[in-house]
């Protein structure tokens, strides 16, 4: 039993990181109706930027604040140049563009930083273990990650529901002529949403660095899972991604305990089940 509770706690930790990655992906998809296949590569870039910032200033907390800002600027530049011309085109074009972009980014990072990975030191202040009162003690850093993810989820939800950004962008996607006629500078709002999505990917990169290190293919490995989370949760559904990310983390962790050989495929089995019996996703609307 104690083992199971440990496993549940660890599953939620793994799930939290998936939630963060899926949320950025789903934000851009849900608001802009744009599938950003390069999301994983941008997450990787965020992790590398964090490694460089850490190398330069030697302080994890500065990296934690700075990297999302840098990534937001990269996201904005990307939106302004490559992404914007794709909005009027069909989604397959956008998909192919960002798919190609993924390769370009990965090869670019290989050229600059080499194909080997590098390790990233976590914050010294969190290099201890915390007893939760159940299960085994967990590294404080992992709990910190969960707290940060929780704050980001809350922040994004407020951003979408307590500001008019969400409303305007959704309206603009339906009828961009009308929204412009109302005097709204629609393009600016769109760029903000894309930049926020990329910043969230970058933040996921910063947080993951001390756990797995950074390497050029790290985004490719996890992007597939992030897509599964989005599909299972319901495409475009905010809380769907949160619930499904945690659920998949949990299921993988529990499978690891009882039948580890299947741990790699359970997320995909879940996706098949959801696609079969609830095609719109757990919390998706039709």
């Amino acid at each position: 039993m104690e083992q199971l509770t440990s496993q549940i706690a660890l599953g939620l930790v793994s799930g939290a990181l998936l939630v963060l990655l899926a949320l950025g992906l789903n934000l851009i998809f849900g608001m802009l109706e744009f599938i950003n296949f390069s999301h994983g590569a941008l997450y990787m870039v965020g992790a590398y930027v964090a490694a460089y910032v850490l190398g330069a200033v030697g302080n994890f907390w500065i990296a934690l604040i700075l990297v999302p800002i840098i990534m937001a600027m990269i996201g904005a530049a990307l939106e302004r140049t490559l992404i914007r011309p794709m909005y009027p085109r069909n989604q397959v074009d956008a998909l192919l563009l960002t798919f190609g972009l993924t390769y370009v980014i990965i090869e670019g990072v290989r050229m600059i930083a080499g194909s080997g990975g590098r390790s990233v030191a976590g914050p010294e202040e969190l290099a201890f273990q915390v007893s939760l009162g159940f299960g085994r003690p967990l590294p404080a850093y992992l709990l910190f990650v969960v707290v940060v993810v929780g704050l980001v989820v809350l922040g994004l939800w407020l951003f979408l529901n307590r500001t008019n950004v969400g409303l305007i962008v959704r309206g603009g996607i339906r009828d961009h002529i009308m929204i412009r006629a109302l005097g709204v500078r629609f393009d600016r709002y769109r760029i903000v949403v894309f930049a926020v999505g990329v910043a969230v990917a970058g933040l996921a990169g910063v947080l993951t660095g001390p756990i797995t290190g950074v390497y050029p293919e790290m985004g490719a490995d996890i992007l597939i899972l992030a897509f599964v989370v989005v599909v299972v949760g319901g495409m475009g559904s905010f809380w769907g991604s949160v619930v499904s990310g945690l659920l998949i983390g949990l299921i993988v962790a529990i499978t690891t305990l009882y039948a580890s050989i299947y741990a790699g495929i359970v997320p995909f089995l879940l996706m098949i089940l959801v696609m079969t019996f609830r095609p719109r996703g757990l919390l998706g609307t039709t």
């Binding site: 849900g30 109706e33 599938i35 993924t102 490719a220 490995d221 597939i224 897509f227 495409m235 905010f238």
Partner: peptide
């Protein structure tokens, strides 16, 4: 943050499937 155009949803889904296929091919 919801997609409400149901006609688009099918296309999105197809695109995602394609994305996953591509991801499978390009796994490494």
């Amino acid at each position: 943050m919801r997609v409400t155009t149901s006609s688009a949803a099918v296309r999105h889904l197809l695109a995602i499937v394609l994305a996953l296929l591509l991801a499978g091919c390009g796994g490494s």
